[in-house]
Design a protein around this nucleic acid. Sequence first.
RNA 1: UGGGCCGUCGACUAAUGGUAGGUCAAGUGCCUUUGGAGCACUUUGUCUAGGUUCGAAUCCUAGCGGCCCAGCCA
Length: 569
Amino acid sequence: MTEQAPITSNFIREIILEDLKTNKYQGRVQTRFPPEPNGYLHIGHAKAICLDFGLADEFKGHTNLRFDDTNPSKEETEYVESIQQDVKWLGFQWDSLFYASDYFDQLYEWAVQLIKAGKAYVDDLSADQIREYRGTLTQPGRNSPHRDRSVEQNLDLFERMKRGEFPDGSRTLRAKIDMASPNLNLRDPVMYRILHAHHHRTGDKWCIYPMYDYAHGQSDSLEKVTHSMCTLEFEDHRPLYNWFIEQLGIFPSRQIEFDRLNLTYTLLSKRKLLQLVEERHVNGWDDPRMPTISGIRRRGYTPEAIRNFCNSIGVSKTNGSIELAMLEHFVREDLNKRAPRAMAVLRPLKVVIDNYPEHKVDELDAINNPEDASAGIRKVPFSRVLYIEQDDFRENPPKQYYRLSPGREVRLRYGYLITCTSVVKNEKDEVLEVHCSYDPATRGGNAPDGRKVKSTIHWVSAAHAVDAEVRIYETLFTKEDPNQVELGKDFTSNLNPNSLEIIREAKLEPSLATPQVGARYQFERLGYFCADPDSKPGHPVFNRTVALKDTWAKIEKKAPVDPGRGRPA
RNA sequence: UGGGCCGUCGACUAAUGGUAGGUCAAGUGCCUUUGGAGCACUUUGUCUAGGUUCGAAUCCUAGCGGCCCAGCCA
């Protein structure tokens, strides 16, 4: 396992350190991760999870998992299950599991208390009217005509809202704050709305449901949360968060806002991810192209890689976007150290070793992981007919191309030095097979005379090869910022038509015939691959997690001249 | 155009009035039975203009730029 990346400090840790120093909460650090169960968790949530759990762990504190389930029309138990699975998979364990709906009774009592204190009132205005009365960014709002009802009447009306006497949308409970506040959140925010909807946990007990602003801070307070982290867009809500707590005189949790994660070529909005799923642009929430935890897990990412990434990107209040290369770096770093190596040929080209005995099969030693001696070695069968990668042969090699070409000698990894003697082509001038001779004295890959070859290529014995499907992924979107669209179009116009390439004719070394689902390998010289649940015994399916860094691709891109054709490729 | 928040290498992030540092990316070299990995080196930055100060990324003022807020979503 990769050692933990050092966590660079941040302003939230500084706040906690200061609170610890001044003994503000008697040395307690209590956080919470509060997802709404209305979708799958994504890499952006992973950042929040690492923060919430990581900071609490660091200071011997506690973290609750709390489902923010105040809107029954969007929330489902499928999501609460996937969220728990994902948090655990990332390597975190919550101290207590709560639901905002656990607090519905208490929240109702507190609402009554606020009504009695003249701090809340039942409003009969419709949604449209409320919007109208709210004013605009530059103009103050106006008081609702119902704002000054008596406490008795408010109590009666609120009670009857709860009993179900009124239809959806006909009334709300509002906090009585200030319709002229420059902060729109303080212009008598709605605390309760009428919603005759079945709730995934409370069933039909309630037909009024608290709004986020009224539920979240009070839930934090009930759990004695000391540091309540959320994203920047809630900054404007903090005065309201504090207002409820002050009016109620309950435990003062503190809300601290940090910047949401943005990743290039990636969308991190639950609404848009849901759209991708529903419109079938991807094959479900766990499609390996999705930035969901379940998607990147299926893609082959490790929890350690994700945690190291989250701990390395820092936490601040600046709106920025992290390059996808950063995330990829951390999977490569982790997998390089732990993934066993294997040989796989994605686009096979037949190679015949003419001077190798027809039916001979040799078992060659291959190192499982050069980064980890304890991983040991395995046997790989070698015979007269092999597959190599089409990319590893060029009839007319460009400058700096070191791989196989007519007359050239290369090394077959853990095998022999071979020299290309001739090629067989079809009528379309395509190379069908390559003929080589091998040097029997080079078994294992070294020449007794000390001669060197410039290149080592991977291979699979044709007679022993396992047929496999390999899925190659590119970014889901073609634009760094998928939200950047022409007028009248939406983000789906930036979908990358080549985000998934299915290779059905891949040839794998025999040890890969029946991998465990989720097993991760490095296919030598190609990248990291992960066995997909679609695998069948003897016919595996692999997802490419990430390619290896490819220096040759860079060289070729920089000087795209093919001397064989005499013009830029 | 009301309010809130934010501007440091290409990206992300440190420096808490005292040497602008780290990671990724990019580049160069070494090494290599993965053109992988590793190692070494290199390039590029404090939004602008004033001010305070022995000294400013940091404090002040004024600009400029970006993000968020007018759901009975969270």
